[in-house]
């Protein structure tokens, strides 16, 4: 059986691409027997979803904008 390290790596691959038949079977068997990795899989898919909503909300100060504008006007 593949290790937890390999299984979780396959989980990450599976979230983004298609696994080979062999990889799929190996992962399925591992997840059937390993509760921790099965939980990891659910959580990782969920994290993927929320990561796409992560943004920052910073602003340039008036002085910074002024100095940028000045450089552009030169």
């Amino acid at each position: 059986m593949i290790s937890c390290k390999n299984a979780t790596l396959l989980i990450e691959k599976k979230l983004a691409t298609k696994l080979s038949v062999k990889e799929r079977l190996r992962l399925k068997l591992h997840l059937f027997l390993c509760k921790a990795c099965a939980d990891y899989g659910i959580q990782s898919a969920w994290i993927d979803k929320v990561l796409k909503n992560l943004h920052t909300h910073d602003q340039l100060s008036v002085e910074e904008k002024k100095s940028m504008q000045q450089q552009l006007n030169q």
Partner: peptide, 19 residues
């Protein structure tokens, strides 16, 4: 319209760079 760049896109680009 380069004269509007800083005002229009400055904050957006800053956040893009910041992350």
């Amino acid at each position: 319209e380069p004269e509007n760049w800083v005002e229009k896109y400055g904050d957006m680009l800053l956040n893009y760079a910041l992350v």
